[in-house]
Amino acid sequence: MQVRITLMVAALVLCCLAYLSLGARGDWSFVLAFRASKLAALLLVSFALSWATVIFQTITGSRILTPAIMGFDALFLLLLSLLVWSIGGQAYQALPVQGLMAANAALLCSAALILFKVVLRAGRDNMMQMILTGVVLSVLFRSLTSYVLRVIDPNEYAVVQAASFARFSNIDTSLLTLAAGLSLVAGLGVWHLRHRLDVTSLGPVLSTSLGEPPQRLQWQVLILISILVSVSTALVGPVAFFGLLVTSLTYLIIPSSRHADILPAAALIAGIILVGGQTMMERVLDLNTPLSVVVEFLGGLVFLFLLLRSLR
């Protein structure tokens, strides 16, 4: 496994170097500084999303759930469109950037806590019910959003729409410092909990008998997830399948269930996919297809391939 981790680190470093250097023309110091901040944003997103998904799957005890599938992104967009609708698009855009992010993060955190708490309580001992609830809620939120969008006027529509698609090529780098700070705090929090998460992943019965009832961790973990997801959503917008893809790949590649192994590996894999994919898209293929499409297509294929191979 050490070999695999080393290989992944090497791959990520290569991707980053390629991203920074390929096709750079003109003033190097300017290009590098510009690209470095975008690279930092991509890495932050990889880190935040992968960790959020891993710990979310641990406390829900399911490898299929992700914050996105449970309706987190959809709820974010709904709140955003409600906000734009109530205060108006211009007033919304006039808010200072940092304040906007803080407001978004706060909105997301509180909404996410309510959502997850409701959903998790609903499905305390019935996983099927919990997943159904999440899937249905996200459809509900999405439909309500498109309802609100139809009602508000076209200019304000554009404001919401800009926020509702994942965008990797023009990332809002003005938020970097704040985002990095938040991720660092949340990341430390998660790392601190890693051994308790290991026990929790054994399931409610075993973990309770080992003295770590899952309910006790839930609040802390949910707050950490909310912070991480709002960081990523604020930077690039919602990315539906990315988290699921990353954790699925991680569990297929890493033969371990210790969070001390899984968490770094997940972050590395996420970074390789995002930075590598973005490099390919922007620099090598010069394609204008959105990265999220490619991530979903190639990542999905890789996932199916690995899954079927592991079953054999």
Binding site: S62, R63, I64, I69, M127, I131, A240, F241, L244, L245, S248, T289, P290, V293, V294, E296, F297, G300, L301, F303, L304, L307
Partner: peptide, 21 residues
């Protein structure tokens, strides 16, 4: 059993991405 909808979602996502592409 939950692998089935998981594979379904990802499979649908792959084909959907192909359509978008």
């Amino acid at each position: 059993p939950l692998l089935v909808p998981l594979v379904g979602l990802i499979y649908g996502g792959i084909v959907g991405a192909g359509v978008t592409y």
